[in-house]
Design a protein around this nucleic acid. Structure first.
Lengths: 131, 131
DNA sequence: CTGGATCCATTAGGATACTG
DNA sequence: CAGTATCCTAATGGATCCAG
């Protein structure tokens, strides 16, 4: 049991995670998750996203939206009205990811206190052992 | 259906994703996922991780391991032998995350070709429409 | 073997101002 | 409303050398 990794793991992680990591880095990037979750309930407008996420800059919202659209995770629809109206919605591929993202945030919610405590304890041991 | 986001989403994303995002940024960071997956099969040594992940620098491996240990996701065991032997293994909290991480990489594997194609198509439309 | 420390290049990302 | 462009700082991360 203590040797379950020797020689096998390297191939699993190498061959699969490497091309996958590029995808994941993009999809699970800093702002991608909240955007995908916010857009999961239906088409959502630029300004709505900007307010919903709070903390995101207009610049990063634009950049992340572009990347998600480029990767085929978001569908961008421009309504040629005045003032302009642009809506973003998940593509089928992104919808498939939604459940997993909820699991991810669910896990984070359930354990965020425990994690914070662990971090505090760790810092205390190393920061001011006996001062 | 096209208005499912108005006013409701903002609270969902704000109140939940914000504290959660800090946790996620750390856990789903660039190198955390491959490390957690590689360590899921049982205790694994520093050098084994270094070879298994391939592309990670010794520095980033150390830093990410420290963060994961600090957050209580990895348990670090030092065997006082010579030469030293250090093993990392998932904590129960991290084990709870493992299934979700596999879903995540599974999704990335299934769609990475589609995503690459989408990206290429997007670039072609904008890069050299008729040149 | 398992790191820590330092230096340096790249990139992410905020602030701000401007536009169709 | 929905962006784009520019500037500038902070963080990321590789390379290298040193150490218990």
């Amino acid at each position: 049991m203590s040797q379950g990794n020797t020689g096998v793991t390297s191939q699993v992680v190498n061959a699969q995670a490497c091309p996958v990591r590029e995808v994941l880095d993009r999809v699970v990037g800093k702002w991608s998750v909240p955007i995908l979750i916010a857009a999961a309930h239906g088409p959502i407008r630029f300004t709505e996203l900007e307010r919903a996420i709070e903390g995101i800059s207009r610049r990063m919202l634009t950049l992340t939206l572009r990347n998600l659209e480029r990767d085929g995770l978001l569908k961008r629809t421009v309504h040629p009205t005045v003032p302009p109206k642009v809506e973003y919605e998940l593509t089928p591929v992104a919808h498939e990811l939604h459940g997993t993202l909820l699991r991810l945030t669910g896990w984070a919610e359930r354990h965020r206190v425990t994690i914070a405590e662990s971090r505090a304890a760790y810092d205390e041991e190393r920061g001011l052992v006996d001062a």
